[in-house]
């Protein structure tokens, strides 16, 4: 089986949750020039296809690596835990107190939504955003120390918090549309 280059390898960067986004953008620009259609005027179909594929992989890699949340999930995936798959997610036992907390918060948000109280929902969102960034930071620390179980739980929390924030956004759109 051929090794598919990781997003980090495409840019010759070390596998890490810490990354200089500015440096990444510079690298991306430089590498993109090499696959730019203008540079391939004399190229045959095969060369063009390879260039187009390379360009697509670079764009996808940048999207993942630029975003600290997606980058952390990706680093965890490279360490063997792909939280997006049902199997890995099912194997992940989230602490019961956390599930209870999320359930309570979702019920409270639901209450605010029924009552059409946007400001209440927004203040909940603010609190959740802070919890999300604290969990992300826990995950990053754990990933730096190669502590996969702690990182998995922390990123699991990030997923639940993100879901909550999406619901608040949906509520905002719902009100804006009415």
């Amino acid at each position: 089986m051929t090794h598919v280059a990781t997003h980090f390898e495409l840019f010759n960067l070390p596998l890490s949750v810490d990354l200089d986004v500015k440096a990444l953008d510079d690298l991306h620009r430089k590498l993109s020039l090499e696959t730019h259609p203008d540079r391939l005027t004399g190229a045959d179909a095969r060369e063009r296809r390879i260039a187009a594929e390379k360009s697509a992989s670079l764009n996808e890699a940048v999207k993942v690596l630029r975003d600290p949340v997606r980058r952390a999930f990706y680093v965890l995936e490279l360490k063997g835990v792909k939280l997006d798959t049902e199997h890995a997610a099912a194997a992940l036992k989230m602490p019961m107190e956390f599930l209870e907390e999320i359930m309570e918060r979702r019920e409270a948000l639901d209450g605010a939504r029924q009552a059409r109280e946007l400001s209440r929902a927004q203040s909940m969102a603010k609190e959740i955003a802070a919890l999300k960034s604290a969990s992300l930071s826990t995950a990053q620390t754990a990933l730096r120390a190669d502590d996969v179980p702690t990182a998995s739980i922390a990123l699991g929390k990030v997923r639940y918090y993100s879901r909550f924030l999406e619901e608040v956004e949906a509520f905002e759109e719902e009100l804006a549309a009415s």
Binding site: L83, A89, A90, L99, E100, G156, R159, S162, R163
Partner: peptide, 13 residues
């Protein structure tokens, strides 16, 4: 019974 799906962030009681 309280369960969650970390793949999508859903919770069920």
């Amino acid at each position: 019974g309280l369960v969650g799906a970390p793949a999508c962030g859903d919770v069920m009681r």
